[in-house]
Write a protein that binds this DNA or RNA. Structure first.
Length: 1005
RNA sequence: GCCUUGGUGGUGGAAUUGGUAGACACGCUGGAUUCAAAAUCCAGUGCUUCACGGCGUGCGGGUUCGAUUCCCGCCCAAGGUACCA
């Protein structure tokens, strides 16, 4: 007896693969390499749902396919195991995050193992493991010890910058830094105190400590990066975020902006993802333009307002300047008469939160400063205004307002009655600004009149540069990334503070391990959780972590410096560990380096990366940044981490709802008042919702004992109203494939259902409503892959997830459809246990008989299609192809090894367990994963006949089977003489007959 | 607003350079088998019409012998982004 017992087959092969380390990748191999990577998961307490493995299944199919193609495949997996949820849980329960993380990982691993992935687990990484974060700390130190040279567009060691300072000072230096540094000579540099030198260097380092305006989330008690904020609230938890000035570590990612932008051109990523990154980097090319502020006598006051514009061609249209309320020049230029009003305006805008200001876009507010500046070209006086439509954080926080060419400037000018000057030829600006660049001709603009946008811009920049009133400038939206988090469960910084200045701990003393704390909350004085650690000080004498009480009090009088200093209390953000993990997999057990040169030279970078698009502006940008940095410093040969990237679409859940109406019955005659809750059908629910019925079917209630003495005529109409309706989620486990609710189960699950009277249909069932939503625990629509594996098997799960639709598309999960692929696998099994050719049925039956022509054709058609599909990541269509193949081979009664053996290899990336099992039954002792992919041969597909579609005016009417070697004319004469042709022509003479040999015949007329 | 991706039966989705629209499944209908159910198998299933036929890939045009596919103009949905000067 040999049915398809998937549970035992799958357990058997999973054990075999693990015990024999079948998927262990070698760092030395004659074979070409291929690196397939999944975005590693955060091991949450909820475990995996069927949406999570989608990308893993796709990458696994590809990895297995590449092995069949003869590649040495690296396909690792690990865990992004630092993060907020474990810490929040720790705060609530007091459990150490390391403990819950470990438990969650164990559960994840069990779930992953059941799906039959070909991961090389010997290379597993965990970002929260100190042997891993040792190297995260090490990379941080390298960033601290580097600066960025603009001339070479490359990061260099800071020691080289110090040498330059020693010899030349910073005069003429073209380095990327924070605020523009005052110039100093070599002599001056050498005369500076050590402290002053360090402070100057901080402005050049690629990670630096600075007081910056950060996004502070009070509820989470931490700062957040821009990409961790969604619609003005925190991504995790949805809490409000406010701006706050704090001293924080930052990453100077902005210096890499241009390279991050250009690098995209060579990557095989989706256009939408590249576009998202381009928008996030936000390059604008334009010019800086300086306006000199003058006094009443029109004399230069020594104050320059620098503006940034992308439209230098509109410079003759400037009729005012606008400063952001936060601009520090505001105070310096405001006239005595305007001071009160300006102060009032600044106070009101400061009160508004970021969100309110954004929400209030339509309200135009502003105030005149009383001051004027001279136009750099016309020397006209330009009034200076303040307006909150100008943002302090972008460009210079000041704009040259050209109302005729910018809608915001236009609206502002209209609102405050500021003149609008038209500088465009033949354009009406009485209604709105003219913002179109292309095809616009400049007018009323002195030497640029008559020129196009492009030519005029270049001429203006030239003129400005000559007068030293401006220059060509490029601005990026991308800001430096805040790197400090006021949290416990993250990487500690390898940093201590001496006299308030940060010092790096030498590489040999890494890792700096996370200290124990008794609570995971901030301290009473508002310090981060690490402030609670008893031992959190660095002893520079012994190079060990010691008790915080020993910290040097040298700054106090009467104390000597004992060499013991406080350690950094912040930890690194979640993206620190995930920014370089793809390289760690190459040599995961290396204790001496983050990965050996040999390993990195061999594996280079990730050939195929699969993961969610939610990481477009976070992880995918940061890891590109770190890769470019490590490349510059000579630690990596490659300068992009991921060559090809695919975003798998989200699998949505099908939530189940009970439609509920809460009824209140009041009866004046009878002091009976009832509140009852009914679960009604979806159609009744919709009717009531749309006001189509005013009363629900009263018979339902009449049968109910509570209504024995009730006068239904008195039922208040208003009690059957939209407002009485609500929908309640039910756990999808209590709903079957026909949407019938398990009433007993659901009443046990949630006692509220005991108080609800269910209105049943004619079959005596309650049918739930379905709606597609994001799969989540709170929506009770989570489908667990373990349950699917248990009921149908991992091979079915794998096939079904692929069969659902195109990989990159979002699609709803419906367990109902899974029977289709499951019965395919059963048919597939039966094909190898057929009663044909002397088989017993139920007994393995493969013959050495030569295959029929049809069977060979089926096989080679399948090889061709499946190979193309895998290479195009069109996995859903190859599942269909397998189904067609099995249907055909079954009806052909095929038992030939010649056909059925290669078919196993084709299926094995998709359904590896069943393929291994049948492969071993064929007598192979090696795993099927070592077998070569079957070779497609065209000769089996060559046909001599073609079923031609015969169409009339483009409409197909009938088909005709004709030999393929017929000429155009022969086809035409055969078709024209066919009796059906004569019938469809109804006596008309065709104007034209189109014959495309091998394709189609179309008769026109 | 801007950018990106989409829009095909009751449902998920096929259709590689313009050439038989709806492959493959799910669901549904009918039948076989079964004491019965499950499982399995067979037939049918875009809409409309008794039928001949007509209509059909978001909408309106265009190119073409022929358009889901190419071009122009709209509509809708999802995702990204936004007083970014």
């Amino acid at each position: 007896m040999s049915d398809y017992h998937f549970n035992s087959i799958e357990a058997k092969w999973q054990k075999y693969w693990a015990e024999n380390q079948i998927f262990k990748a070698e760092n030395n191999s004659e074979k070409p390499k291929y690196y397939v990577l999944d975005m590693f998961p955060y091991p949450s307490g909820a475990g995996l749902h069927v949406g999570h493995p989608l990308g893993y299944i796709a990458s696994d199919i590809y990895a297995r396919y590449k092995r069949h193609q003869g590649f040495n495949v690296l396909h690792p997996q690990g865990y992004d195991s630092f993060g907020l949820p474990a810490e929040q849980y720790a705060i609530q329960t007091g459990q150490h995050p390391a403990k819950t993380t470990k438990e969650n990982i164990k559960r994840y691993r069990e779930q992953l193992d059941k799906i039959g992935f070909s991961f090389d687990w010997s290379r597993e990484v965990r970002t929260s493991d100190s042997e891993y974060y040792k190297w995260t700390q090490w990379i941080f130190i390298q960033l601290f010890e580097s600066w960025y040279c603009n001339i070479h567009e490359q990061a260099f060691p800071i020691s080289e910058l110090i040498e330059i300072f020693n010899e030349e000072g910073n005069i003429g230096l073209n380095a990327k830094c924070g605020n523009k540094q005052p110039e100093f000579s070599a002599d001056m540099w050498n005369s500076f105190s050590e402290e002053k030198q360090q402070k100057i260097l901080l402005n050049y380092r690629l990670t630096y400590l600075a007081e910056t305006e950060v996004n502070w989330c009070p509820q989470l008690g931490t700062v957040l990066a821009n990409d961790e904020i969604v619609n003005g609230v925190s991504e995790r938890g949805g809490f409000p975020v406010v701006k706050k000035k704090m001293t924080q570590w930052s990453m100077r990612i902005s210096v890499f902006a241009e390279r991050l932008l250009n690098g995209l051109n060579h990557l095989d990523w989706s256009e939408s993802l590249k576009e998202t990154q381009r928008n996030w980097i936000g390059k604008s090319v334009g010019a800086s333009v300086e306006f000199r502020v003058v006094n009443e006598k029109e004399e230069f006051k020594g104050i320059v307002i620098k503006t940034f514009t992308t439209r230098p061609d509109t410079i003759y249209g400037v009729t005012f300047l606008t400063l952001a309320p936060e601009n520090e020049l505001v105070d310096k230029i405001t006239t005595i008469e305007q001071r009160v009003e300006v102060a009032k305006y600044i106070t009101t805008t400061a009160k508004k939160s970021e969100r309110e200001r954004l929400a209030d876009v339509k309200n135009i507010t502003g105030v005149f400063t009383g001051a004027y500046a001279k136009h750099p070209l016309t020397k006209e006086l330009i009034p200076i205004w303040i307006g909150d439509y100008v943002l302090a954080g972008y460009g210079t926080g000041a704009v040259m307002a050209v109302p005729c060419g910018d809608q915001r400037d236009y609206d502002f000018a209209k609102h405050f009655n500021i003149p609008i000057k038209n500088i465009f030829e033949g354009v009406d600006i009485s209604e709105k600004a003219h913002t179109e660049k292309e095809g616009t001709i400049i007018a009323n603009s002195d030497f640029i009149s008559g020129y196009s946008y492009k030519d005029a811009s270049n001429k203006v920049i030239e003129a400005l540069e000559k007068n030293h009133r401006g220059e060509k400038e490029i601005n990026y939206r991308l800001r430096d990334a805040v790197f400090s988090r006021q949290r416990y469960w993250g990487e500690p910084f390898p940093v201590y503070y001496k006299n308030g200045l940060p010092q790096m701990i030498a590489e040999e003393y890494l890792p700096i391990r996370l200290p124990e704390v008794e609570k995971y909350l901030p301290t009473e004085t508002g310090e981060p959780p690490l402030g609670r650690a008893i031992n959190w000080a660095w002893d520079t004498n012994t190079n060990k972590i010691v008790n915080s009480k020993l910290i040097s009090k040298a700054e106090l009088e009467g104390y000597e410096d004992n060499g013991i200093y406080p350690l950094e209390l912040n930890t690194m953000p979640g993206w620190a560990g995930s920014s370089w993990y793809m390289f760690r997999y190459m040599d995961a057990l290396n204790n001496n380096e983050f990965a050996s040169k040999e390993a990195m030279d061999y594996w280079k970078n990730v050939d195929l990366y699969i993961g969610g698009s939610e990481h477009a502006t976070g992880h995918l940008l940061y890891s590109r940044f770190w890769t470019k940095f490590l490349h510059d410093r000579g630690f990596l040969k490659v300068d992009e981490p991921f060559k090809k990237l695919i975003n798998q679409g989200m699998i949505l859940g099908e939530s189940a709802f009970v439609n509920i109406i809460d009824l209140e019955f009041n009866n004046n005659e009878n002091p009976l008042s009832l509140r009852l809750t009914y679960a009604i059908s979806e159609s009744d629910y919709k009717k009531i919702e749309q006001g189509e019925i005013e009363k629900v079917d009263l018979d339902i209630f009449k049968n109910h004992k509570e209504f024995k003495d009730f006068n239904f005529e008195m039922l208040d109409k208003s009690s059957v109203d939209k407002k009485n309706l609500r929908r309640k989620h039910v756990l999808v486990d209590y709903v079957d494939n026909s949407n019938i609710l398990d009433l007993v189960g659901v009443r046990q699950w949630d006692p509220e259902f005991n108080l609800i009277e269910f209105v049943l249909n004619l079959d005596g069932n309650y049918i739930v409503s379905r709606e597609v939503e994001k799969m989540s625990k709170s929506k009770y629509n989570v489908v667990n892959p373990d349950d699917i594996c248990k009921q149908y098997g991992a091979d079915t799960l794998r096939l079904y997830e692929m069969f659902l639709g195109p990989l990159e598309q979002a699609k709803p999960w419906s367990t109902a459809g899974i029977t289709g692929v499951h019965s395919f696998l059963k048919k597939f099994w039966r094909l190898y246990h057929s009663p044909f050719e002397g088989g017993q049925g139920d007994v393995f039956n493969i013959t050495e008989n030569p295959a029929s022509k049809e069977s060979l054709k089926t096989l080679h058609k399948t090889i061709k299609k499946v190979q193309e599909d895998i290479e195009n990541f069109s996995f859903n269509t190859s599942v269909s192809t397998f189904m067609i193949a099995v249907n055909e081979l079954t009806s052909q009664k095929c038992t030939s090894k010649e056909v059925l053996e290669p078919l196993l290899i084709l299926l094995s990336p998709y359904a590896p367990h069943i393929a291994e099992e049948l492969w071993s039954k064929l007598g192979h002792s090696e795993s099927i994963s070592t077998a070569a992919f079957p070779k497609f041969e065209e000769k089996y597909l060559i046909e001599s006949m073609k079923k031609y579609p015969i169409s009339f005016n483009g409409k197909m009417r009938f088909t005709m089977e004709l030999p393929l070697d017929l000429s155009k004319d022969e086809i035409e004469s055969v078709v024209m003489s066919h009796k059906k042709t004569i019938h469809y022509l109804e006596g008309r003479t065709p104007k034209k007959v189109i014959v495309v040999p091998g394709k189609i015949v179309n008769i026109v007329g």
